[in-house]
Design a protein around this nucleic acid. Structure first.
Lengths: 219, 219
DNA sequence: GGGAAACTTAAGGGAAACTTAAGGGAAAAA
DNA sequence: TTTTTCCCTTAAGTTTCCCTTAAGTTTCCC
């Protein structure tokens, strides 16, 4: 679950990084509105958290641009102003939800879950593939109806592979799923995680394509 | 995936060569802007990465010349952080995207993928020919709807032949598809790969024209 | 028929992926 | 806080795979 956070306040940004990370999200953090467009061009995010008061340009403008570019990605806006107008305007301009600063992180998490559930169609945000069923809400995995215990990293990797099943993902793409823009670990780390996943689930589930990457085939 | 890199900084150039190479790109590296035109005349590239600050001539001039010559090839320009004007001018002059130095290699890779996806039309970049269907991003091949397992080198060769079906490709051109301007292996290596491709797919698919090269005919 | 180009087959070496174990660090518990 | 638990990463050793070379055979063309 990769999320784009656009927030110029360092303190707030850091604490959000930490607490979102703790809940299984991979967060990429931008501090300037101008950088958003470029990021969306190249990266896949599940949602955007957008502060409206940014140092370079107005958050509402960023919001508009995103929608004009045709992105349907869910967006939560953060606003400090008790300006009702801004909030309304934000929703009109394509935001899916808003939060008033200061807010409880609990609430942010709840709204994120709701949004992600909403766009992934079903009420239960679950992905299925090849006898595998993963619930994105509580990081649970079932294989042939038997529960399987995975660590955070393992779950993230598996979720990425399942979400893009039928496509080969390079080790670097998997690194990104784990670490976002942070400096990645060595490729060996991925190999070890894959190894553990195969041991816990099924040795034939994740296939390697030498020199290219890993894939879970579509069923 | 052959790419032309125009960059005078030795250190940066080398690290880009390595990491692009690791991601399946074949990179040809020039350090002078004047050499670009000649290369484009004789070689086929999927994209160009062009540093704007070159020792011999201005990168923007190179860009203009490329476009004036009618090449539609995607171009990413690299520019120092403060040259906003250059960036804008670059985009006006026909660049498809830009990166600010210093940049994360991750980001460059992502943008390359996006650009290549964009020009090859749909998200699923597939080429077809003579009952052959290859997915470029998965390194997958189907022949008459049956999957065929190929190695990386075999796939590259086949992809080149299919992409230019109807044209004869010399062994040297095929070497270049595999190795760029790196020292190539002996021609025998190509012969062996072709042999294996014929064995795996269909002995009559790839034709040899004695003294000239190999061809897959158009259908 | 002779020579060059292409085809075929097998083997060696090196790189990519797999496997296992251990250390260090972060989260959780006390 | 201190302690404990857990797991992510690194490191090192093993296995697997495949690219290239080499050597021999066949085909083509002069």
């Amino acid at each position: 679950m990769r999320i784009l956070l656009v927030e110029d306040d360092i303190l707030l940004g850091e604490s959000m990084m930490v607490s979102l990370g703790r809940h299984g999200f991979t967060v990429d953090w931008l501090q300037l509105g101008n950088q958003v467009e470029a990021s969306l061009k190249t990266e896949d995010f599940m949602a955007i958290i957008l502060d409206l008061t940014l140092p370079d340009i107005d958050g509402l403008k960023v919001l508009k641009k995103i929608r004009q570019a045709g992105h349907k990605i869910p967006i939560i806006i953060l606003t400090a102003r008790d300006d009702i107008e801004d909030r309304v305007k934000g929703l009109d301009d394509g935001a899916d939800d808003y939060l008033l600063k200061p807010f409880a992180l609990q609430e942010l998490l709840a709204r994120l879950r709701v949004m992600i559930r909403r766009i992934s169609g079903n009420t239960e945000s679950e992905i299925e593939c090849k006898g595998l069923r993963l619930s994105l809400q509580n990081n649970e995995v079932h294989y042939q109806d038997k529960p399987i215990k995975l660590t955070k990293a393992e779950f993230k990797l598996l979720a990425t592979l399942v979400a893009k099943s039928g496509r080969v993902l390079s080790k670097d793409q998997l690194q990104q799923a784990l670490h976002g823009w942070d400096e990645a670990a060595s490729d060996n780390a991925i190999e070890v995680h894959i190894h553990n996943l195969r041991k816990k689930i099924d040795s034939k589930l994740i296939k390697n394509i030498r020199g290219v990457g890993y894939i879970i085939e579509k069923d």
